[in-house]
């Protein structure tokens, strides 16, 4: 019985992240539009976009290789598995021990590696510009994320995200300097990783400053749908990570029963709404940076992460 329940919970988690992620994107777009006094697209528009794209034919460039066709599935699978291992409504997931936070970061790294390859595959200048900028951004964002992981792992005594979430939820830790630094760094990394303003602009398409959109320019049909869905999953993943570590309320523990799960779900949807709203607010309030200002922005995240880790090495109580 227990095994079946655990399997069901894990399956539920996989479905929830998959189904909620377009909604989160739709919500962010809606809030941004309302903040600009526009009507904005309906909340469910991302779902409609995905379905429409999936039904369309794929138009493949003549110089595209077999790898170009496989990559959307690799990106989607990597991101989905990573998202399914982050505690959302409950922390006692069946397979949460199979990959810790390092492995989740690295899975997203794999997805990005293939995405950057896809940008180079057709052999166009736009794809190249996107890929080369993406790896430059990643070369700073990924170590920053690992330093944040170091900080959290040293505080919680574990690199397992579920153990971290339980520990943070237990209320043992009060306000700590290193946690504050880590949160700041994590927000910067999340903005960069999800190609949001001020690092990249998810709304533009024909602009020399674009990064993510330039890489996926040659994709169409079902391939584009998968890549869009992966980006939406990644946004959800980062909001979930911030939620489960820094707003660890309402997460159902190992002893999950229907009421706690319902509570966990409600809390999770609430956290997503808060995260999405804050993201939209931030994006509306700030302008996009020049590409070569981005390294300084991300370098700050890396230094904050390093500083937070150093503080923990020096003193357990900071």
């Amino acid at each position: 019985m227990v095994v079946i329940r655990d399997f069901a919970l894990q399956g539920m988690q996989m479905l929830i992240v998959l189904l909620l992620s377009p909604l989160l994107t739709g919500f962010v777009r809606k809030v941004k539009a309302r903040l600009l006094r526009r009507q904005g697209p309906p909340l469910l528009q991302p779902y409609r976009d995905l379905i429409r794209l999936m039904r369309k034919d794929v138009v493949l460039a003549e110089s595209a290789s077999w790898l170009f066709r496989v990559i959307p599935y690799i990106i989607f699978a990597g991101t989905w598995v990573a998202a399914a291992l982050v505690p959302t409504f409950g922390s006692g997931l069946l397979f949460s021990w199979s990959a810790d936070l390092i492995a989740i970061i690295a899975l997203l790294g794999s997805a990005r590696f293939f995405q950057a390859l896809a940008g180079l595959d057709v052999g166009t200048s736009f794809g190249g510009i996107g890929s080369s900028r993406e790896v430059m951004i990643a070369s700073l964002a990924e170590p920053a994320m690992l330093m944040i992981m170091f900080t959290l792992a040293l505080i919680a005594g574990s690199t397992q995200l579920s153990t971290m979430a339980t520990y943070m939820g237990s209320g043992v830790e009060g306000l700590r300097v290193s946690l504050g630094l880590a949160l700041l760094a994590l927000i910067i990394v999340a903005l960069a990783e999800n190609a949001r303003i001020p690092v990249d602009n998810p709304a533009t398409h024909l602009e020399l400053t674009m990064v993510h959109e330039a890489m996926v320019l040659e994709y169409s049909g079902r391939h584009l749908a998968l890549i869009d869905l992966s980006s939406e999953l990644k946004l959800l993943l980062y909001v979930s990570v911030i939620g489960c570590l820094f707003m660890p309320w309402g997460i159902s523990g190992a002893e999950a029963n229907p009421p706690t799960i319902a509570l966990g779900l409600a809390a999770y949807v609430g956290k997503l709404a808060v995260g999405g709203f804050l993201l939209a607010l931030f994006e509306t309030a700030i302008a996009k940076m020049r590409v070569f200002r981005v390294p300084a922005f991300l370098g700050a995240a890396l230094m904050l992460g390093l500083l937070a880790t150093l503080l923990l090495f020096v003193s357990r109580s900071l």
Partner: peptide, 12 residues
């Protein structure tokens, strides 16, 4: 959904 595929010149 769809399994159709067409080849065309690169969009760029």
């Amino acid at each position: 959904a769809s399994d159709k595929l067409r080849r065309g010149p690169a969009w760029d």
